[in-house]
Design a protein around this nucleic acid. Sequence first.
DNA 1: AGAATCCGGGAAAGCGCTTGCCAAGACTAG
DNA 2: CTAGTCTTGGCAAGCGCTTTCCCGGATTCT
Lengths: 383, 383
Amino acid sequence: MAQRRKRVDQAGARVTLQDVADHADVSLTTASRVVNDGPRQVGQALADRVRKAVAELGYTADLQARAVATGHSALVGVIVHDISDPYFSSIAAGVIEVARSRQLLAAMSSTPADRGGGAVPGAVAEAAEREYVALMRAQRARAVILIGSRSDDAAATKALRAEVAAFTAAGGRAACVGQDLLGVDTIQPENRAGAEALAKALAAQGHRSFAVLAGPRGLITARDRLDGFRDGLTAWSVELDPARVIHCPFSRDGGYEGMSAILAAGAPLPDCVFAVTDVMAVGALARLRAAGFTVPEQIAVAGFDDISTLRDVYPPLTTVRLPLKRMGEMAAGLVLDDQDGGPGPRTGGPGTSRPGTGNGRARVLPVPGEVILRESTVPQPPR
Amino acid sequence: MAQRRKRVDQAGARVTLQDVADHADVSLTTASRVVNDGPRQVGQALADRVRKAVAELGYTADLQARAVATGHSALVGVIVHDISDPYFSSIAAGVIEVARSRQLLAAMSSTPADRGGGAVPGAVAEAAEREYVALMRAQRARAVILIGSRSDDAAATKALRAEVAAFTAAGGRAACVGQDLLGVDTIQPENRAGAEALAKALAAQGHRSFAVLAGPRGLITARDRLDGFRDGLTAWSVELDPARVIHCPFSRDGGYEGMSAILAAGAPLPDCVFAVTDVMAVGALARLRAAGFTVPEQIAVAGFDDISTLRDVYPPLTTVRLPLKRMGEMAAGLVLDDQDGGPGPRTGGPGTSRPGTGNGRARVLPVPGEVILRESTVPQPPR
DNA sequence: AGAATCCGGGAAAGCGCTTGCCAAGACTAG
DNA sequence: CTAGTCTTGGCAAGCGCTTTCCCGGATTCT
């Protein structure tokens, strides 16, 4: 009834809680209480009036204002290198889904122009990541999830780690999918074990002479997969000729180029090529096709990740399956389920002062990969 | 120097602008002014002191608080059906990139469980979209971008449209990628013209008997592509037998099933199958392979979109290229470049009351597709 | 030299919301 | 019938920031 304020109650005009309160003829406090039905009771009659006013005015609470009032925000940041890469978008899908189920919104970053695979792949990417973590800190995001391999650039990692520490020190939670290098909860795909198992399976199929498209030099994921693969071969007493380890960008084109290099190396071609990524394997396949080789008859190819969009390339890729979406969900769970009853963000009291950096409490959840044998590799006759 | 406040200046504790001001021994006002260097000048000396304090304390402005104070938020919402679908993630990548360049953050939604291709595909998806638009309104997002085809479910579209109108009425901007059905700026891929051109090209190659994997019945994008294709054939006096138009989900599996249906239909197999989506085409390819058919010798296949991840399937798909990432950038540009000097968000005054729904000013930018002929279709001998 | 102007600084009033605290009234208990 | 305990409503003080004034001093103009 009351219409104390000057502003027109026109449809669409920005309507505040005060408007609702006026319209329902109650105090701001009461309106607030019924809107976010907390522990505090409100009389039936008033509550109804407020709800009616909310409906009539089409009121929607300003979450930003609420966030500054309460100290909690509804934002969780997701940092990926390139959202259009199916590896990342699959993981991101997992994160987004649990964010959604919790009524949070997931903000996505994408580090552009890392595709070229320039000089130091890690450095520029980590700089962008750092920048985004800082942005999330500025937004007082509830949590941030970093997805993707760390590089072995110690300086860059350290800087990123410091930024993340600042973030957690400010009350946010952080997790990462990749390597446990940031001092935060980590979802850790078992790259090494997976590649080792793959190598053994390939050896069991009869392959004896290998080459590896090993990805960029600095990326730990790439290195782990390479090392694991080598270990697996060693178990079968197969040597991996260092000259047959080709470093190349983590992309389809990288795989293509890498395969070119192998072909160019000449005569005794390997009978099996392991690309540390499905995406690269696809590039390798394309190169082989261009050169007129048949896979797997003349040369076998294996990948890693089991990207679902790539399940229909021909021939179907032997690979190591990683539950990408699940990993995203796990990471989100790690960071959103406050197992320690989260310290009140209001006062930066001693409760919060638990050091965010390497607090020793960081959990790491290993995620095993599963070897999937498909037609891109086949049983070979033993020599 | 001054340390008036009770709180410890420990590293990491939540540090506010007031802390900075105290530390630099200036007023809050001054600190604010130097931090976001606006039009107002600040003396060199004080400015330096403030900057020093910022650095020492590791201060980061609280963007949420700033948003409530200024009325502008730094959030732009992106609504896609499934971020792990390369079609969407490519467009999203474009949006994210321009958001990033403008120092905004892009929040992503993903409508889960639309994959089953249930009864009314549009309805459930639009409900989720609506919910998310409401969330963005609550966050007072600066803009929202809806990506993906509209369904022809009038009720659902109307409801979504109303929600979008509420959003724009509250001062946000909106754009969509798909059909111009929401009364907002639209990036409109020329599905119809693209499919028509494709049909003509296919006919020119000599194909004469076609089947279409047409996607779900309600989706306008699917229908446009089908209609355009039919038109293109008509121009060559080729009939498209309605029994040869198979409706199936918009996914890889949908394409697989649809192809099964075509094969099951028996005897006079078409010599070319057009799948309205690359993803579906890949499913169709898989089905054909499973049945022992060779493509394109025995049967040709064409898709639409030119998804880059799928460029290496074998045989390479004839398709219609859409500049996906570019489209995302365009949408973002539409919504972020305020061409009309955006109404002051502070007062919901008459300036804002320009009706958000169908204000007639909605721009629609058509995006042409480019026919790309590859090996999945080949010149056929004329009969 | 006096008036007119400009300039850098700060006090204080917001932005839209939550919440600690107090004050009535409605109960129950003694 | 009075003292104690719940309830329920509202005032007002925040949250961390921006921005409108206002004010005194330095600069410029005539």
